[in-house]
Amino acid sequence: MTLTRGTVSVSHLEGTKVGYRMLASNPSSPTLLLIIPFTTTVDYYLPEFENQQLTERVNLIAIEPLGHGTTETRAQTITYWDSALAFLETLDALGIDQAFVMGTSQGGWIAARMALLAPSRVRGIILIGTSMDAESAASRELGCWDGCEATAALVQLSHDLSPMPDFVTGDGYSDFLMDIGYGKGVTQVLRKKWAESIRSIYSGDAGKRKICMAAVCISSRDGLHSRLPHIECPVLWMQGTDDVVFSVANAEKEIKLFKNAPEARLIPMQGGVHFLSFTHEKEIHQNILQFIGRWKST
């Protein structure tokens, strides 16, 4: 097995460096692209890279969207479509023609966009703790969070273009992410790990601009409801019942919009939190392997 961690230079947005971590076991094995949740890094998917059943059967690539980790771009305003296009160029740079794409939370939004942009290259999408809507009143009525309110301070800060060399996110932000992501069972080890990661990435003027770009992406993203019938690859959606960000009721509504997918399956997971692999790691890995096993030869 070959483990690689670094960046790939792509042309999108007049030049972008995309951060990734890749573990390739066999050139003939299917590839699974893993897209991280908000303000984490490729380290979010360490449980997948450490799972021998997965790594023996699937080549893994974890990847960091614009506004995250070691990914860098010259652009000052970005969208999830930009990340999707940059990821497709990253696959080109790594010599990968086709892949299954899995995303947690915002990663699900990007996975769906990749399937829309490059239907011949995305063999299937796996959605975890996500939504296909904008930050809408309709989604809040179904029990989803108010993402515009949650990101309002960072969005407002994005309007101030003056240099902020002393910018730091503070512990309040990382604690907020831990609480909504991992839930009541979050460990002190995880709190420390991600507090250090967020402090390292999102500090100084460059860090301020990066986290503000990421926040604007959430609050202003476009919904995909009218586009989902155009996704023709298989879809697996896993959603925790204790997810405080996106609800099972919302997922039940939206999975029906994949009208032309050969499979569109929702699996609610009892007691599962937003970062679902924290409470249901074994179940997620089993479903990944079964899903890829069903569709890798089509």
Rank of each mutant, 00 (worst) to 15 (best):
S162Q: 11
M22P: 00
E149G: 09
P234W: 08
Q156C: 04
T41K: 01
Y44F: 15
G143H: 07
V101Q: 06
D97R: 14
A134K: 09
Y44M: 10
E281W: 09
P234S: 07
E254C: 03
P119A: 07
F246L: 05
K296W: 06
S203G: 03
I128R: 08
E14Y: 08
V245M: 13
S247C: 05
I126L: 14
W295K: 00
P268V: 09
T169I: 11
D242V: 01
Q290E: 15
T31F: 00
L88Q: 12
D243V: 01
L54Y: 03
S174D: 11
T71D: 06
I218M: 14
F291T: 05
F100W: 02
K193L: 12
Q52Y: 06
D243T: 08
S139G: 09
K184N: 08
W194L: 06
G204I: 11
H68E: 08
D97Y: 10
H12M: 09
S28R: 13
I292V: 10
S28I: 04
A206G: 10
D43N: 11
S220A: 14
P234E: 00
E149Q: 12
S200Q: 13
Q98A: 05
D179F: 06
D92A: 01
L33P: 03
R209P: 02
V235K: 00
I63F: 02
L157C: 06
I180C: 01
P47L: 04
S105T: 07
P37R: 07
M1I: 06
K184V: 10
Q188S: 14
T4H: 12
T70E: 12
P37G: 09
R199V: 03
R21D: 00
D43C: 00
F49C: 02
M213P: 01
C233L: 09
L94G: 02
S162V: 02
A118Q: 04
G124M: 02
L161Q: 14
R294N: 15
R113D: 04
I255L: 01
T31Q: 04
L236D: 08
N250S: 11
M1C: 05
E64W: 09
K17S: 14
M178L: 13
K253L: 15
L32H: 00
I211Y: 08
W109N: 15
E283R: 08
K193N: 00
S197Y: 11
H230C: 14
A215C: 13
I231H: 05
G172L: 13
L32N: 03
T104V: 13
L117C: 11
H274G: 11
P37V: 03
P27W: 01
S200E: 13
I61H: 05
C212F: 08
S11P: 09
S277N: 14
W194V: 03
R199C: 06
L117W: 06
V216F: 04
L289K: 03
T39I: 12
I267K: 10
T40A: 12
A111C: 06
L88A: 08
A249K: 15
F100T: 02
A195Q: 15
R5H: 13
S28E: 15
L60W: 01
W81K: 10
K17Y: 03
N250V: 00
I218N: 12
G207W: 09
I126F: 02
T7S: 07
P234H: 00
G172V: 07
A24K: 15
S83Y: 02
G204T: 11
N59L: 03
V273R: 11
V155K: 06
A62L: 05
